[in-house]
Design a binder for these strands. Sequence first.
RNA 1: UCCUCCUUAGCUCAGUUGGUUAGAGCACAUGACUGUUAAUCAUGGGGUCCUAGGUUCAAGUCCUAGAGGGGGAGCCA
Length: 468
Amino acid sequence: MKDLKRIEIIDLLQGKADDQIEKEICVKGWVRSKRGNKNIAFIALNDGTIVHNIQVVVELAQFDQDMIKRITTGASLRINGKLVESVGQEQNVEVQATEIEIYGEADPETYPLQKKGHTLEFLREIAHLRPRTNTFGAVFRIRHAMAFAIHKFYNDKRFFYWHSPLITVSDAEGAGEMFQVTTLDLDNIPRTENGKVDYSQDFYGRETSLTVSGQLEGELGALSLGKIYTFGPTFRAENSNTPRHLSEFWMIEPEMAFYELEENMNLAEEFIKYLVSYALENCKDDLEFLQSMYDKELVERLQHVVETDFVRLKYTEAITILEASNQKFEYPISWGVDLQSEHERYLVEKHFKKPVILIDYPKEIKAFYMKENADGKTVRAMDVLFPKIGEIIGGSQREDNMDKLVARMKEVGIDPKDMKWYLDTRRFGSVPHSGFGLGFERLLLFVTGMVNIRDVIPFPRTPKNAEF
RNA sequence: UCCUCCUUAGCUCAGUUGGUUAGAGCACAUGACUGUUAAUCAUGGGGUCCUAGGUUCAAGUCCUAGAGGGGGAGCCA
């Protein structure tokens, strides 16, 4: 077989290899389908670079029939052939095969993917193979594009990528149940004299867990480097069984010194709009595929978010709107209660019909580190609420006053002695600062139009499910 | 964790009031067709009816428990 330089399918289909037309080239990829008659076969070949396939035309008389029979859906091929303008309507160019090598066969009796559609639920059971489908190829290419855009956005704004630890010693935020990290022998746990687990013999000499948020360590970065962001995995051991929760998910947490709540909101809105714009500009083929298959209004909805000013609303005003709505809510609404999904959905999907940033929540329903307002009742929190997926961002201006922060810690039962390292940021050169957390997979739900969070991460981790 | 629905061929699903040998489409195999577009047409093979009990002359179908999955809720990002 002639040794020709391989051209990726995206370059062939997007005209970047048109200077090779009428010349012999090499393509490699996996067979999506093969069809034809006794004289000719058409192979749809995909290499993952783009949602579309290159059509390979095989004049059967020129090849060994036994080899051709072994080319089935899922097989991987190396093909040399002439790049030509296509006779067919569905593509501009195609490859007329001159030489074919089968890298790996895929037994059609046992290969689970077929050319006809599968349900997302079935594909979830074969998560190791589902990226070979058009749908998951599109989703994971978009996932990559969004990850890249996040780094680009913050780098362009002179934020520094800051790595908070994944193994932590505290659950200060109270964000949820934690996964314990230990090297103790669970069949033979060392005990202290009073019968408790003796963590002094554990790997770190103390009790440790996987992080539920990089925020507190992020604040340490912001109060020295100015503007930082984290982007990494986060773990919550809550028994949440919903299409919006994972026990292992990725979170982006910017933290900015000298930013007050207003600037925090501006950044959050600009950030989301930047990411959605980036997807519209750079993931066109994949978005159009997802739109055609799952969500007819996807691109329209994305454009709407880019063009619309988010509503900014105080919690107190939201309560007034909800009380005046005459809606029957399962959970009654009054000042001081946390908003339920039904309330958020009413505000976002019915009342305003656009994204809403809710601010100034009662301090009792928010975390201890949020800055208290002058009214003494509310804190400078902000939640960004999106249609369909609910809370996509949670953030706040942080309490920078040492005494108030310590008082709040005591109120919620945190021993300030355990948080000395955190309090040192307020003890020495404290400044106003703010930040927020964006759930990466929730963003992807919105951008891809997928409805189950298990379908926007390659290997989802949920209660009772850690296969692959 | 709570509520609710579902589980029948590799996949997606029918299956009547509980009654003979459990069906269809797709996929797969064989064949037909001179360029197809999730090709088409013909023929064929393919079943632990989720698991364990129970009711009954008789259970895919009714009852109980369990497992797995979907949707909704709570917790949250």
